[in-house]
Design a binder for these strands. Structure first.
Lengths: 116, 116
DNA sequence: CAAAAATGTGCGCGAATCGAAAACATATAT
DNA sequence: ATATATGTTTTCGATTCGCGCACATTTTTG
């Protein structure tokens, strides 16, 4: 269930002990999570996500969320940031237009090439 | 901990019973989640997120995720889609450049205006 | 309006499982 | 080679999960 923990921990070069310490739980408890014979409480799960600076969904290995840009306008689901500054609706709208046009153009290019 | 459940359920106009049925659990079990005196297992939590077509993080009320665009290049965290088509790295890179430049320009504009 | 059905709310219990301590195995460092 | 750190498993008391059941409240139906 929590198979991604191993990767997350090792990419940080932390031992189980160190990870457990940071989470303020016993190493055997943490080990239980990694080995899969224990499940953390929701609070612990949340703490783990915070520690690894990732989402709970990612830790749970849930089918990676795909964020549809057109839907994220005016919705408070996920906020996008660039260089730490959150993306304004205007920037998002510009981007959508920008990319749609680029996609249209690349279609036409292909079409022309085929014709030639 | 799971205070968002009420909203999610009611926005669908489901009774507790109906929700529990869809989740294939007892209504008293589901009620426990909503009232906050019970926590679902990770599997149940995941099922709930699926049922409500939302993320576990959202259900847990975790500080809304912000996705840093520069970090999402080459990372398998969340995939962005536009009009149902997933965003290529190239499109993302272009957008980052595009927006950075726009931001730079708007700074300068302000500067010029101040000078004038 | 009254009866019936559905829904919400809470209790109690057996079963499941949590979290930690401890012991042991294995690896790393001195 | 010995000590120290890390990984892994077992054990156990305490917690709490999930459900059935009962009752209150609301909604539906005739």
């Amino acid at each position: 269930m929590l198979s991604r923990l191993v990767t997350l921990r090792k990419s940080r070069k932390w031992s189980m002990q160190e990870t457990a310490d940071r989470l303020e739980i016993a190493k055997s408890t943490y080990a239980g999570y990694e080995y899969g014979y224990r499940e953390p409480s929701l609070q612990a799960l949340s703490d783990i996500a915070d520690l690894f600076e990732t989402s709970v969904d990612h830790i749970l290995g849930r089918s990676e969320q795909s964020l549809e840009l057109t839907k994220s306008i005016d919705e408070e689901s996920i906020s996008l940031t660039l260089d730490g500054v959150s993306l304004s609706n205007e920037e998002l709208i510009d981007f959508i237009a920008f990319t749609r046009i680029k996609r249209e153009l690349s279609k036409k290019e292909t079409f022309i090439k085929k014709e030639a």
